[in-house]
């Protein structure tokens, strides 16, 4: 592989990783981690979901039926799990960008010296 090809490849890879990083950050912002709690009001049980948005803690009514609660909690758990994986991937992506930038620096230096 010539130095030019290597430089183009590294730049493209950095661009792809950065685009992906932006999408991940947007996802994590748009889909915050959700927790669920219940309240007993006048003898009835109500379920609420709680999450953080723009630095504020927000509580929203989820459901009042236990069956519905089980259905919803499955969805919330799946979403939280997906979020956790993406969060982990995000760190991996940041490390990859760092490594690629270092490689690019070396390749560009070599290209200048040719």
């Amino acid at each position: 592989m010539s130095i030019e090809s290597n430089i183009v490849y590294l730049k493209e890879e950095i661009k792809n990783h950065q685009e992906r990083l932006q999408l991940m950050e947007k996802y994590l912002k748009d889909y915050p981690a959700i927790s669920v709690y219940k309240r007993k009001i006048s003898g009835n049980i109500y379920y609420y979901k709680k999450f953080w948005k723009n630095g504020k803690s927000i509580s929203k009514f989820l459901c009042r039926n236990e069956n519905e609660y089980h259905r919803e909690i499955k969805k919330i758990e799946a979403a939280n799990k997906k979020r956790q994986i993406i969060k982990k991937q995000l760190q991996g992506n940041k490390n990859a960008i760092k490594a690629l930038k270092k490689q690019l620096q070396i390749a560009e230096k070599a290209f200048k010296n040719v």
Binding site: E4, S5, I7, V8, Y9, K11
Partner: peptide, 9 residues
């Protein structure tokens, strides 16, 4: 640089 990469291919 991209031109050179194409020619390399």
């Amino acid at each position: 640089l991209k031109k050179m990469k194409d020619l390399d291919g």
